[in-house]
Design a binder for these strands. Structure first.
Lengths: 250, 250
DNA sequence: CGCGGTGTTGACAGGCTTCAAGCTGTGTGG
DNA sequence: CCACACAGCTTGAAGCCTGTCAACACCGCG
């Protein structure tokens, strides 16, 4: 019975709520069993918690189960760039696993639960389940694709376009995994985060967000925003939006 | 004899000049044989040639054997962002292979030769050689790391810092694979390319490069620049440089 | 109550873009 | 041979976008 209780503290992979979402590809029973054994535990964090630190050496890989956060890097004088956001189904720590040392930090924006995997078992995954290995490459390549898009945004779009792009991106990403309904309303974030993502100052970010609000595309609320018109945002950004593809889930 | 001549047109993987470079990890004989069969041919391009087009669906994956080029994306109105540069040992087309459609273009800056692989054999690679599968994930994760760094640069560094970062990056990357000796001199590139990488206008890029030249860090020549002082560039950029790690080569 | 975090706004300065013109070297065709 | 076009580089001037500084409102919290 003790064992049973210990297991009850974690979500069984067999009952993983994320697998209910049709956006994630189906697993065979043997894959499910392997991943279930691969999973070493769960990590629960508070909002604002730092999960991984730039320069550290963490022996784990994580998959987000609930909540959301972001990856970021710092320059020596404190300037911060937010690289991407992480939401349920996303994997973090892969870079650290492969490069040895984390090259970026990860922070939670809400309370989060993460599935914990051991780096060391990575090689076994590739040996026993080539399709899962392919999935991990898929995940890395997709993250790369998103970063490409962000780089275009920061490099070549105007402040208004960038902001519209980011909010549309977050909205699409969140709704795809059920983090938000039609609105971004329950996604807690400050304008400082937005600014550090867009590569803008906080003052100009504020003024830019107000312009989007004036166009009735969003409503900024305390620590977050509600998206009123995704299509409008996409149009302002000059962006097609993300392809709705089936994706793997480790 | 005909066969022999036909084979002579391509570089045998067993005699691949890149494998001489100690920066690339050693291959076992069975890995070498597999990759050798995986390789379907070679592609030779002129300077300025477009190798992959955004939105197209190309059934190949490539590894750069000689020369260099870049990946880029366009906005609808023609604004261009260069995402990263490709040099010997780099793999391109992986995203297309996994996402189906290319989300960026690839152009040659010099004459190039590329090893051609078939997408379809990818899965077999994962099945037969898990370590090669892991290598491909390694490559994708590393590209992601570089993009993180570029994003920090474009988002948070000043024009001067950005330019210094980029030139130091290119210099390090090129010397690591023997593309350049101590100078970048034989790397042909225009200031328009630099501008599209940094997210700056060409006019301001020109003025920024002159500032670097005034500091005796570089000398701009016709279609390219010579790096006089890498450490100085790194210092201006506030960047540590790239870790000199052993890397895989497919 | 004071305090810190967040959001808002105005004024001003400066970095960067745009416009415009001119220079150089290369190639093409008369 | 020269004229011409073109691509790349350079420079100056004007103006806008964005950053910085500063002040204030609001809110939750100790």
């Amino acid at each position: 019975m003790k064992n049973h209780k210990a297991r009850a503290e974690r979500t069984d992979c067999e009952k993983c709520p994320l697998r209910e979402i049709k956006k994630f590809r189906d697993f065979g029973p043997d894959e499910l069993e392997f991943v279930s054994n691969f999973k070493k535990g769960e990590l629960h964090t508070d909002p604002g918690a730092t999960i991984l630190v730039e320069g550290s050496n963490n022996p784990h890989i994580y998959t987000v189960l609930t909540g959301w956060g972001f990856r970021s890097k710092l320059l020596e004088d404190g300037r911060r760039q937010i690289l991407n956001y992480i939401m349920p189904g996303d994997m973090i720590g892969l870079q650290g696993s492969i490069m040895g040392e984390m090259e970026h930090s990860v922070e939670a924006l809400s309370a989060m639960t993460l599935c914990v995997f051991e780096r060391e078992y990575m090689m076994k995954l590739y040996e026993k389940h080539p399709d899962l290995g392919y999935d991990i490459t898929w995940i890395a390549a997709t993250e790369e694709r998103i970063l490409d898009e962000h780089l275009v945004s920061v490099g070549r779009r105007t402040a208004l376009e960038r902001a519209a792009y980011l909010l549309a991106y977050l909205h699409q990403k969140a709704t795809a995994v059920g983090l938000a309904q039609e609105e971004c309303s329950d996604l807690s974030i400050t304008q400082q985060h937005i600014a550090d993502t867009l590569g803008l100052s906080i003052v100009h970010t504020n003024k830019t967000l107000r312009k989007l609000a004036q166009k009735d595309l969003i409503i900024w609320k305390e620590r977050g925003c509600e998206v009123l018109n995704v299509k409008g945002l996409l149009q302002v950004a000059g962006w097609e939006g993300m392809p709705e593809k089936c994706r793997p889930l480790i």
